[in-house]
Design a protein around this nucleic acid. Sequence first.
DNA 1: AATTAGGTGTCATTTAGTGACAGCGGCGCG
DNA 2: CGCGCCGCTGTCACTAAATGACACCTAATT
Lengths: 229, 229
Amino acid sequence: MGTAETSTERGRGGMSEHRRRRVRLEISREAARLFWQQGVDATSGDQIAAAVGLSTRTIWRHFRSKESCAEPIVTQSVAWEMSTLRSWPPHLSLEDHFAAEADRFGRESTALEQADTALGIRMIRLADSEPALRTAWLMACDQVEHEMAEIIATRLDGKPDDLDVRLHAAAASAALRVINEYIGAALLDGVDPREFSDAASLIANAVRRATGGAVGDPVEGADETGTDA
Amino acid sequence: MGTAETSTERGRGGMSEHRRRRVRLEISREAARLFWQQGVDATSGDQIAAAVGLSTRTIWRHFRSKESCAEPIVTQSVAWEMSTLRSWPPHLSLEDHFAAEADRFGRESTALEQADTALGIRMIRLADSEPALRTAWLMACDQVEHEMAEIIATRLDGKPDDLDVRLHAAAASAALRVINEYIGAALLDGVDPREFSDAASLIANAVRRATGGAVGDPVEGADETGTDA
DNA sequence: AATTAGGTGTCATTTAGTGACAGCGGCGCG
DNA sequence: CGCGCCGCTGTCACTAAATGACACCTAATT
């Protein structure tokens, strides 16, 4: 694919997807901050542009609408759950893996990452009252569902567009979405985070139940040496 | 609630919600037709207004955005599934009930209703390629999820905002969504509708699996006389 | 150095969406 | 019956979201 992945930044148009993601996230941060501070309707494209230091035209080149500016930061807030699913070794139960990763996240995550997560939670909360943001949240979850389909497909040795895989992915990501809404709302209401120390098993059980047990338990026939990356 | 539900139409502001739904559906029909014929981007608010015979201003009074004009017709296309779920007697299995209702729908439905359903299917298909319509479809499914939460809450004797009820509703409606996308796409690809004579069991099994078996089977402790309407 | 391509800025333009006000039509009430 | 109230719609002016066209800059390729 790429002609060269030398070292610094983009290699003649190849690396630019990575760069694009960063710019979009940057915009999304400022947009989310403004949305939270003043509401979506009270925030203009010009304001977002000024806040991030770009021209308004460039904002519209990166996002097709004002509301969709919120998507990356919201996707980001569930990104670790996704990457956790991706790195899920076959011989572990979902709760064990999630618990370990959650712990690692608590220790290793950047302040920036945590701020992003907080911002994402606020956006999800805001989606309750602002229909425009609800669309953004649902679109982000739609993305998650597609990723989930790939993950489940590889884990169950099927194809991402098999009906069963799609059903599993849809149900699992819907469950994940509800839990995110639930925990996020609670956290914003001032509930002690340690209240959710069982989040791992909560998620695991929800996913397991939503997929009829197809996803959640250690995969048989997989030894500890790890067949997959 | 209503001051008077005499006979004809609206009773001094009370009946107007019903009327509002009809107008919205009317607009949605024309919008969907135009979206399908020329694409979403190529369709302007003015065109929709002209097609339905209202002023553009009135369109924006009924819908907050162009894309959301598609929501009613799309919601309509899953409306019978919802009403079927609502009328689901406790002592029946989901497949039996669905099969019976589907049969009844095939016999009793109006030509207009069938046209609406076809239009809805087209919108769902269009949502694959048009992000703007995908948001509308997802928002419609979000509505379905809320209805589903109420249905499940009553059936399981819980409250609609219980975490478990929400999880069940989310997973079940997500499954329903995927099946709708799947069957709709197949039908538009020219697959013989009789190919999906097992749709009832397909849906029932998907819902049952998505809810961990909590929804789908006859409810115990409910005799055939029927406790609920 | 010349080339190429993607990202960005600027300006003009279109179109989605809102505010304000006036007219119509039904309905309750004197 | 006539009067005023209320909700729905149309008209017009306006704001803001979004796109097109074009030029410039930067950086990697050759």
